[in-house]
Structures are given as C-alpha cells and as structure tokens.
Write a protein that binds this DNA or RNA. Structure first.
Lengths: 366, 366
DNA sequence: GTGAAAGCGCTAACAG
DNA sequence: CTGTTAGCGCTTTCAC
C-alpha cells in the first residue's frame, strides 16, 4: 500500500544527497549538526527503514546466519535453535532456519538455498556428517560453518556431546543395578550418526561391564503401543530388564507403551533416555537420562560461528601483510560439551538383581 | 574461498550476454538449442547458482515468508512452524523465522527486521493482537498477513481455534463428572490473549453449568513443585477437584507436581490441558485435553498467506480494468479450526461426585 | 561537509 | 534469437 520509502525519498525530503542520508543514518562519516537533524527528521517523518536487500547486495554481508536442523518437534532442537537465535540476535545477526526432516535430499536443498540467500555462515545438524557431499560443498565455499550435535569433522568446529562416552556410561549404570539383558531402541537408526554413536558406545559399555551385547531394536516414528517385536522382548522368559532409548522423546513413549502392556517402570523394566528434555522431569516416574544442555549447545554454536564470521571479516578488512595468506582463519576447536547422567525413578534395579545406589554422576567437559 | 560465481562469469564462459544466461537458466524467453547448451554447460561447470539478493532486489519479490511465534519450546508452535515451512517450501517459498519469547518489544523488533528483509508476507502469533501497534504498522504496509493461533482481527485472516468455545466445553466436562470447585491455571496470563480467552470461556462455561466461577491461579515459567499457593488449594478442606491448565505443557507439569504432593490424578484431582500435544498420550495417566491440530494450523496459515501473496502478484500483473482499484485483495475469511475434547484418564469423576461417561466429543469446524 | 557516480547481481525492456 | 542498457536500494570512493 504505502509506496515503500527508499533512501532517495529521504534525501529529497531532507534536501540533500543520498550519500549524506546513508552517512547520517549509519553513523558512518561526519555531517553538520544541522544536516543530521534534517535527515533524521525526514527519516522518521517518512517512517523510513533500510531495505536490507540493497544493503546486503552492496556490502556483501547479510548479517544473517543460516541454521539447519532435522526437526523442530524434538525439543532438543527447538531449544537449541531458540537459544542459538537469542544469541545471534544479541550479536546483531538474524537467523534463517530450515528443517531437513532427516532427509538428506532436503538437507542439500536447504543448504543450497541458504547459500543463495548469501548467509554469512551456517550452523547445521546433519544426519550423517562424515564425507557428506553437501558439507564438502559448503567447505569449498569457504563459508564459516559450525556443526550442532554432530561429532566434529576434520576442520569444522561443532557443539556436541561425546555420544559414545555418554552411552557407555548408561551401560555402566545398567550394570551397576544388576541388569544383564538390555536393549537399545533406535528411532532412525539408518539416518542418524548420533543414534549410531550412541548404540556403539552403549554396546561397548555393555561388553566392558560384562553384559551381553544389547539388542538393537529399530522403531519408526512414534512407537506403536502394539509393537509386537518390542512387546515380545519385554515379557516372558529371558525378557529384557532394561531399555536405552536413543532419545528422551522415544523413551517417554516407551514408558507409556510399557504401561499399556501391563508392565511397571522400573519394577519390570527400566528405561533410560538421552537428551534431558524438561518433560522427563515432569512425568512420573521421572526419566533417567543423559542430560545435555541443548540451550548451551545452541548458544555455543552461535558464538563460535559468529566468531568465525567476525574473524573472516577482520581478515578481509586489514590485508595487513597478507601476501597470499591462505585466508583460512583456523576453525576454533570446540571441546565436547558437558553432560551428566540423571539417576531417576525410571531406572531401577533389575528384577532379581541390584547393587548399591547413589545420586548423580557428572562428567567434566571432556 | 572459491571466488563466488556470478551470472557474468557464466556469460563469459558461455560466450554470450548475461541476459541470455538469465533467460536460459530461468526458462524465460527463448534461446537456440546450441546457446542453451553452452550456457547450461558453463553454469554447471562453474557451479553457478543465482544470488538471491540481486534477484530479489530486482524483482521486488523474495519468495520468502516471515514467521513470528512466541516460542519454539512449546511443541504446539514447533509443530505448526514445521508444517508451515513444509507447506511453504512446497510452494516455492522460504521461511524466515523469528521468536518473540512472549515479549512485545521483541515482537516489534522481529517484525521490523522481517520487513527490512522484504519478506513477501508474514504469518504471526502475537501476545496480544487487538490494537497491537506493530500489527497496525504491518497492515499499513499492505503486506499480506495471516495470524496463527490468535483470534482473527478485523481484516486479517487467522488460523485459530475458538478458545472460548473450547474452554467452555472443558467446563462442561468437569460439570458432567460432578466437579464443583475447579481452577484455571495460567502461564503468562498477562501476556497472552489466548490464555485470557481460555479463562473467560472456561469461567462462562462453569457459570453456565452451575459451578462456581473458577479460581484463576497464575504461575510463571515451569510450575515449581513446591508452589505453595497451588498446594494449599489442592489439599485440605474445600480443596479443588479439578484443574484446567492453559496449555498441555503446563498440565503435564502439574500432574508431576501433584504426584509429588502425594495426590493422585485423577483420584484426588483431575487435570485437563489444552493443545493436544503428543506427549499427552505418551504418559500415564493420559492427559485429557482440547485437541487442536497444530500441523494443520501451520499448513492452513501458509496456504492462506501464499494465496494472498499470489493474488496480490496477479493483481499487479494484470491491472486489467483497474482504474484506481483499491488494490486491496480481500483477505480470505478463514473459519475457526476444528478441535475436539479428548476424554482421557487424567480427568475423572470428582471426589464424591460423578455422573455418566462417554468417549469423545468432537466439534465441527465451527 | 556533501553530492555525483560507480557498481553489488540480477531482470526486463528494447533494439538489432 | 540475442546483446545492450537501465535500473532495483544501497554503500562507498572521489572530487568539489
């Protein structure tokens, strides 16, 4: 409707050139107090605000960071993204968000679009990072990158937790409470590095603790309460006494399903999750789980990425003694983030087993 | 790193003008098979892709829609946004997301930024929509708008549910089961239209059913289990027998808290939520609640908005007989979305009360 | 101090 | 069919 005000309109209104308007409004370059006044006045009177497209096209910077996550429905990502965004806004960056829905094709599409929109950098969670072609493409662009939740790949920093180590600790907890037959429940085992790592860590931990290798049970989307495969393994002779779900959301579903099967948690079966979402504390029994700090993860990724962007900008600004300096600001090496195991009611002694007890075991930042 | 390829590079490589490259790559305008070949070849060889900034600046369209929600941590918004995005992508639109964290100042900021980035339209959830200055500003811009979860305001379509009607139904359910003293638990009562509407509908419903007006209990962030005010009202003489939480997330927390107070749900107290998030079905007792379809909400908002954008574009394209046509494509009137009441275990007969029973009551789309 | 002018990458007339 | 040209809104030399 209202015919969109441009810097030109402001210049005309203020009776000066557009360059002056730009200088005043951007506080770059000087201007007489009187001119400044006229410009400021004209700008507010017209309700002017910069068109970021023109600005970005000219400056080659968008002050926007791209963010790609598999899903927003998993609270872990919702929280991470939320704080990532808060952090970015604080530093003057916008966030362009995309969800891949765990689909590598969509991942590639989204990344392409993020590039086309010329974001200044990208924070991303990939189904599979090692040797991912889309990732390689991005690196080839020399675009600042920071991974989120993915284990770090050569040269790309990442805000992550050591899935293997954390999962191994879960195994130890099961062992401590006398469990002998446990299983790993995976949601998208084939399409998630993280799920894989957790399984491997858990398996290794089980073996190290003298347990049998855990069964690997794959389920799709939400667990169906009538899931035969699972039900079989939970009742009857030689039944499992413990289940480690690849994430909290899944764990919560399992607890509900067990209830429906007439099994009690942790009386009949213990359940442990991974992530530490709030909901795990809201229900009873509370969910035992590996607690990670999703918000901190998002914040950390944002800080790291913005640091890289700033460094890159600074490097371009002052070519200093740069003969042909590789231009490659070394990626900061983010340490793995802290996590802790939360002993809660959903994890109890195995039927007919059991040992000591305790409160909480926290692991140092790596 | 790699020096960013532009259309000019492709033109040089293909030995033709940039206009030809544009035509070929955009499939606008003709080109000899041979030229096309050379261009296509050069483009792929160079790994070219359009810079959307230049494109948008020129075309005055970004093929991007802005989306503003209060938070991503509430699964309702996460789901709505996720499907909103899916729908948008399908129609060739990107989504620029912003979270206001229920802060009107941030809402305004975010909206400003969305405008500056020249999004083609905006889907938004506001704390308070009636007479919201930021909203007025947007409308003044003539930018396509669609609200999400907010009750529709004059002239702005909205994907929403009738909070009052839904809440009144909750009151009826309580009454049906013999409850006499119930309360409404609100999370950010002062900063949410929706919370208000739900309270009012609930209160009216209670009065209509012959119950006392419900107590209004405000809690902040997550409910603290030791919350004195709440605990008092739940135990002892004249205690409440039912609680209606302003959303599911809160309801789930309450159930956990009640557990800790040694109260059983629904034995001692019944709890009802609002939204119908998945988690409500994963726990036991299952959460009785007003089920809304968040995903459909997001999809619907996207469709409506994109419809408006297309209409606007079409109107500008063919001024047909437009003398001075008000240019204002009439906003589609989205009907309130369907919701249904889910009778689940968390809602039972009042202590010492109770009547009949049933399965589920579904309300038509309005 | 301030304005004119070039140009960021692209599209859309308008000539050939 | 295809190249030239003129901007889209803005920042940034570079003279005045």
């Amino acid at each position: 409707m209202s015919p969109v005000i441009t810097i030109k309109d402001v210049a005309r209104e203020a009776g000066c050139g557009i360059a002056t308007v730009s200088r005043v409004l951007n506080k770059s370059g000087a201007a007489s107090a009187e001119t400044r006044e006229r410009v400021l006045d004209a700008a507010t009177r017209l309700g002017f605000s910069f068109n970021e497209l023109g600005r970005s096209l000219q400056s080659q910077r968008t002050r926007t960071i791209g963010c790609l996550v598999p899903s927003l429905v998993n609270p872990v990502f919702a929280e991470a993204v939320q704080d990532l965004q808060k952090e970015a806004l604080g530093a003057g960056f916008q966030v362009l968000l995309a969800c891949s829905n765990y689909d590598p094709a969509l991942e590639a599409d989204a990344l392409r679009m993020l590039l086309a929109k010329r974001v200044d950098g990208i924070v991303l969670t990939l189904s599979s990072s090692a040797g991912n072609p889309a990732l390689e493409h991005l690196r080839g662009q020399g675009l600042p990158l920071c991974m989120l939740y993915n284990s770090p790949v050569e040269g790309v920093p990442s805000a992550y937790v050591d899935n293997r180590r954390a999962a191994a600790q879960v195994a130890a907890e099961f062992a401590r409470l006398g469990h002998r037959r446990v299983a790993f429940l995976a949601l998208r085992f084939g399409a998630s590095d993280r799920s894989h790592e957790r399984y491997e860590g858990f398996r290794d931990g089980c073996l190290a603790a003298g347990l049998e290798a855990p069964e690997l049970i794959e389920v799709d989307e939400a667990i169906r309460f009538e899931d035969v495969k699972l039900a079989q393994r939970l009742k009857g002779p030689g039944a499992l006494t413990g289940v480690f779900a690849s994430n909290d959301y899944l764990a919560l579903s399992v607890i509900g399903a067990l209830h429906d099967l007439g099994l009690s948690v942790p009386g009949d079966v213990s359940v442990v999750g991974f992530d530490g979402i709030d909901m795990g504390l809201a229900i009873r029994p509370r969910l035992a789980t590996v607690v990670t700090d999703a918000r901190e993860m998002g914040r950390s990724a944002a800080q790291t990425l913005i640091g890289m962007i700033d460094a890159q900008g600074a490097a371009t600004d002052q070519p200093q003694n740069s003969q042909k300096s590789p231009q490659k600001t070394p990626s900061p090496e983010l340490p793995g983030m802290a996590f802790s195991f939360r002993r809660a009611e959903s994890l109890g002694p195995a039927r007919g087993g059991g040992t000591d007890d305790g409160q909480a075991a926290t692991s140092p930042p790596s």
